Amino acid sequence: MSTLANTFADELRLRSESDLAALFTLRPDLLSPVPNDFSALAARANSTPSLVRALDSLNLWHYQIVEAACSIAEPFKKSELIAVTSSETTFAIENLWQLGLIYKDGDKYRTPTNLKLLIGDEPVGLGPIYPGKADLNKLKDVPKTSEAVLAKLTWGPPRGQITDIKKPGTAIGWLLDNNILIPMDSHTVALPREFGIKLRGGKVHKELSIKAPDLTGKKLSQKQIDLAAIANISTVMRWCEELLHNLSDEPPTALRTGGIGIRDLKRIAEHIGVDEACAGFIAELCYLGGLLVIDPDDQILPTSAFDLWLTKDPEERWYSLAVLWLESSRVAGLIGKSSDKNIAPLGPELDRAGVGLIKQTTLKVLLENEEITPEITSLQSIVKWFNP
Results as ranks from 00 to 15, higher is better:
I268R: 00
G259F: 02
A277W: 06
D298F: 13
S304V: 07
D298R: 14
G356W: 00
A305E: 14
T361P: 01
D307Y: 12
V355H: 02
G333T: 11
I268E: 00
F306N: 06
A254Y: 05
F281V: 05
A344I: 05
G259P: 02
A322S: 08
G259Y: 01
S320Q: 12
W325D: 12
G259T: 03
F281S: 08
L310I: 05
L255Y: 04
P302D: 08
L310Q: 12
E349C: 09
D351M: 11
A279L: 12
E316Q: 13
I294H: 02
L324W: 06
K364S: 14
E284M: 14
P296R: 05
K337M: 11
L308W: 13
A332N: 04
Y319W: 14
G333P: 05
S338Q: 10
L350H: 02
D264F: 02
C278A: 13
E250R: 10
F281P: 00
W325L: 13
C286D: 05
I300G: 15
I294S: 07
H271G: 02
I268A: 01
L265H: 04
T311F: 03
K341E: 14
V293M: 06
D264Q: 10
T361A: 05
L324V: 14
A344C: 15
L288M: 14
T257Y: 02
T303I: 08
G290K: 04
I335G: 01
W309H: 13
I343Q: 01
R256C: 09
T253F: 11
C278M: 11
I358M: 10
D275W: 06
L310Y: 05
L321R: 07
T303Y: 10
K337N: 13
G273R: 07
A279S: 08
L301K: 14
G280T: 11
W318K: 06
I335A: 02
I268Q: 00
D249G: 03
T311I: 13
W318E: 15
N342E: 13
V331F: 09
A332D: 08
L334P: 07
K312P: 06
L288H: 07
K266W: 03
I268N: 01
T253K: 03
P314K: 04
G259Q: 04
P314Y: 08
L324C: 13
L324F: 10
E276V: 10
H271A: 04
K341T: 15
G261D: 12
L288E: 14
E270K: 11
D264I: 03
E250D: 12
V293E: 12
G290D: 04
E276K: 06
K337H: 11
S304R: 09
R317I: 01
A283P: 03
S328W: 01
R352D: 12
Q360P: 06
T257L: 11
D307K: 12
E270V: 03
T361I: 09
E270A: 05
G258Q: 04
A305Q: 12
H271V: 04
L285V: 01
T362F: 09
R263I: 14
L350N: 02
R352F: 08
L310V: 03
P348H: 09
L265T: 11
T303R: 02
P302W: 05
I358K: 04
D264M: 09
W318G: 03
E250P: 01
L310E: 15
K266Q: 15
S338G: 15
R263W: 07
E250A: 08
K364N: 15
K266H: 10
L363F: 14
R317V: 00
C286Y: 06
Y287S: 12
G258R: 00
